[in-house]
């Protein structure tokens, strides 16, 4: 009975929405997830388009709603960066935070569209989550080395106790990257699985949990974008150090 149900569920899910499976193509002998690339391009175009459209008419006078949204995001990121690093904030961190939030948010919100079975949210593919994570982790290391010097930056791992350095290394270079990327990926991927499970329900009842789940998915999308951005700023703050810390050392 259970096996049957599971089997039919798998088949149904495969027919409807198949999380983790992609519409692939070959390019120069490499396999590419074309759906992810198209979705990413669409999300990127939306973010860039809105941003450029907003920037064209940007004014210090009475702002448009779109400008207010961008201002709220930029103001929030600026506040986080200022609180964490003060004047030591490396160049571009605010832009990175704004881009991460806006881009991840739009990517995640693609999951809320009914086109999910054609264009899954690109954040549900590790191929997007990993590059963002890699960029953040490498940039954090570079910023830390530039702010405090390589010796101090890596010497920090042995503080306060040298014997805890292995755990610190695992945290910094393994747990953090993995959790940062897979948290985002997992949450959005799970949304796809949920939709595929809801799709097993009979059509006359399906709409209710589906609508409820899509609403919740929007919430998850916002939260995950927020978490990714916030953690990025926190990692930068930790690597660069705040003004007070610099003053006391």
């Amino acid at each position: 009975m259970t096996n049957d149900a599971a089997g039919s569920a798998a088949v149904l899910a495969a027919e409807e929405i198949t999380p983790g499976e992609h519409w692939t193509g070959e390019f120069l002998g490499f396999t590419m997830n074309i759906d992810t690339i198209i979705a990413t391009a669409i999300a990127g175009a939306i973010v860039c388009g809105l941003g450029l459209y907003m920037a064209r008419g940007v004014t210090r006078g009475r702002p448009t709603t779109l400008q207010l949204v961008f201002e709220a995001l930029t103001g929030w990121v600026q506040g986080q960066v200022r609180d964490g690093m003060g004047l030591r904030a490396p160049r571009g961190v605010v832009s990175l935070g704004v881009t991460l939030f806006a881009f991840i948010l739009i990517c995640n919100l693609l999951a809320a569209l009914p086109s999910e079975h054609v264009l899954p949210p690109p954040t549900a593919d590790v191929n997007l989550a990993y590059p963002m994570m890699l960029l953040v982790i490498i940039w954090v290391q570079v910023a830390g080395i530039r702010a405090r010097g390589a010796k101090k930056h890596f010497g920090h791992l042995t503080e306060p106790y040298a014997f805890l350095a292995p755990s610190e290394i695992i945290t910094q270079y393994f747990a953090r990257p993995v959790s940062l990327s897979l948290r985002l990926w997992g949450n959005i991927f799970a949304g796809g699985i949920m939709v595929s499970i809801i799709a097993l329900l009979p059509a006359y009842i399906l709409w209710a949990p589906n609508a409820a789940w899509k609403l919740f998915d929007i919430f998850i999308g916002v939260i995950q974008a927020l978490i990714f951005t916030l953690l990025t700023v926190i990692y930068f703050s930790e690597a660069v150090g705040s003004d007070e810390e610099a003053a006391t050392h």
Binding site: I37, A41, C48, G51, A55, V58, P122, D125, V126, L128
Partner: peptide, 27 residues
Amino acid sequence: PNATFFVEFALFLIVLFVLYRYVVPPL
């Protein structure tokens, strides 16, 4: 990940560049 990784990386860098260069400064 597969080779999509590089394409995604490039796409994200493009978005980052556009926002860094043209959107965030005027804002």
